[in-house]
Amino acid sequence: MINAVTLVGRLTKDPELRYTQNGVATANFTLAVNRTFSNQQGEREADFINCVVWRKPAENTANYCRKGQLVGVTGRIQTRNYEGQDGKKVYVTEVVADSVQFLEGKKDGGQDQTSKQDRVKDPFVMTGGVIEISDEDLPF
C-alpha cells in the first residue's frame, strides 16, 4: 500500500512551533494549494490543507518560513480523532510532512534581505567585453 503526498502551495499564516513534554519540536501550518481548474466564474479556487512536521524540520520551517511563502511538502496523509470540549468526537485529517522545501528566498517587504554590497561579484558573468585567449592558454 502507498500513502504518499506531494504538495506545492503558500502558507496561510506563520507556522506554529511547539514542543512536546519530551522536548520534541512540532510545527503546524496550513497550505493554500491552487486547483488546476477554474470555477464557472473563471476564478481559481484553492484547497486549504493542514500539515504537521516534526523535529529539526519543524524548527527550520518555523524559523525560516512566513505567511505567503511558497513551499513544497512531501509526506503522508494521517487521520486521527479525539474528544472535544463539548464531548463530541473531532476527526482530523492532515499531512504529516517528511520534508518541507523552501521554494522562495527569505523576503522582507518584497525585497531580498541581501544588499547588493553583500553579494560577491561573479567573475564569470559576461559584461559584453571581448575575452582574449591565446593558444597557450588552451588545455588541448
Score class of each variant (00 low, 15 high):
25 A>Q: 08
38 S>R: 15
114 T>G: 02
62 A>V: 07
110 G>K: 00
11 L>G: 07
98 D>S: 12
58 A>D: 03
90 V>D: 06
113 Q>R: 11
74 T>E: 14
81 N>H: 13
22 N>C: 01
57 P>G: 01
79 T>W: 13
73 V>E: 09
59 E>V: 07
95 V>Q: 10
30 T>H: 10
29 F>G: 10
34 N>D: 15
22 N>A: 15
11 L>P: 06
48 F>E: 04
72 G>F: 09
61 T>W: 02
84 G>S: 13
115 S>G: 08
100 V>Y: 05
102 F>G: 01
91 Y>Q: 12
21 Q>V: 09
55 R>P: 03
74 T>Y: 08
35 R>E: 13
45 E>D: 14
93 T>S: 15
72 G>L: 08
70 L>H: 02
19 Y>L: 08
86 D>Y: 01
31 L>S: 15
94 E>F: 13
98 D>T: 08
23 G>N: 11
66 R>Y: 05
15 P>D: 03
91 Y>S: 13
87 G>D: 04
70 L>Q: 10
46 A>Y: 00
90 V>G: 06
114 T>M: 11
78 Q>T: 14
29 F>L: 13
38 S>K: 15
77 I>N: 10
41 Q>S: 10
47 D>H: 04
49 I>G: 07
86 D>S: 04
74 T>F: 10
66 R>Q: 15
36 T>A: 13
83 E>G: 00
